[in-house]
Amino acid sequence: MTDERAPGLVLHSPGGTRFHFDPGTLCLELLPTGGPGPYARYEVLHRPADLADWAGRSRLGLAPDAVRITEGQLTAARTLRDALWRLTAARAAHGAGAGDPADYAVLNHAAARPPLAPRIAPDGTTAAPLPGDGDQLASTVARDAIALFTGPYADRVRECGADDCQLLFVDTSRPGRRRWCSMERCGNRHKVRALRARRDQHEAPGEHEA
């Protein structure tokens, strides 16, 4: 059962199964909305309202009607997302310093604009940012990505360990042994396969049996 109050997103597998995916940071929450090359078939950011909806479902918790997004800003956000996809995948595969300089330029360009203004709630917790526009939203995502790539968890950017899953995350757990995008999905599937393999091995006839 998914906990929609937990940080992260509720995604749907190709088979329609709902599962909770927490990539560990804001910028990586943007990646499941689509992406470059083969990931374009998963595109969900077709209209400015789609990006505003994502902002509400992300860990920003920004009310969709509180962010103004133009068609041009939507295009820029998709460009940023695609560059971030390539950079994150390169980091996961090859470590720090990997990635196309052109993609870093896209990231830096987006981060150069003013971000969404942070706020604090009366109880001392983080409140939803002030209303803003698509450029501010993209800047906030880009700055989060730069903080990730230059911060203490830069060497924990990983791709899900399942052969048929390309979801990317940062492992912020204390032991640093996270392997799966979600224990609900790929982690559980791995457990089921391992259990079946052990059962089949146990049931197989011994070498000296006729």
Rank of each mutant, 00 (worst) to 15 (best):
T150R: 10
C160A: 12
P122Y: 02
A138W: 03
I120L: 09
T150Y: 06
C160E: 10
L137S: 08
P152F: 00
C160Q: 10
T150I: 01
R156T: 09
A138T: 03
Y153F: 13
H109Y: 02
S139A: 15
G124E: 06
P114V: 03
T140W: 00
R158V: 05
P129D: 07
P122D: 05
A154Y: 04
G151K: 02
L148P: 15
D133M: 10
V157I: 15
S139M: 03
P131F: 04
V157E: 08
R143L: 09
P118A: 03
G132H: 04
A112T: 09
R156M: 14
L130R: 13
R156F: 12
R143H: 06
Q136T: 08
A154Q: 13
A117N: 05
A117P: 07
P131E: 11
H109M: 07
D155H: 13
T126H: 11
P115Y: 00
P114K: 01
S139T: 04
D133I: 07
D123R: 01
A117G: 05
R113A: 15
Y153K: 08
C160P: 15
A112Q: 05
T150F: 01
C160G: 13
P152H: 06
A127Q: 11
A111R: 09
A110L: 06
A121R: 14
Q136K: 08
T140V: 05
G132A: 06
D164C: 01
R158C: 15
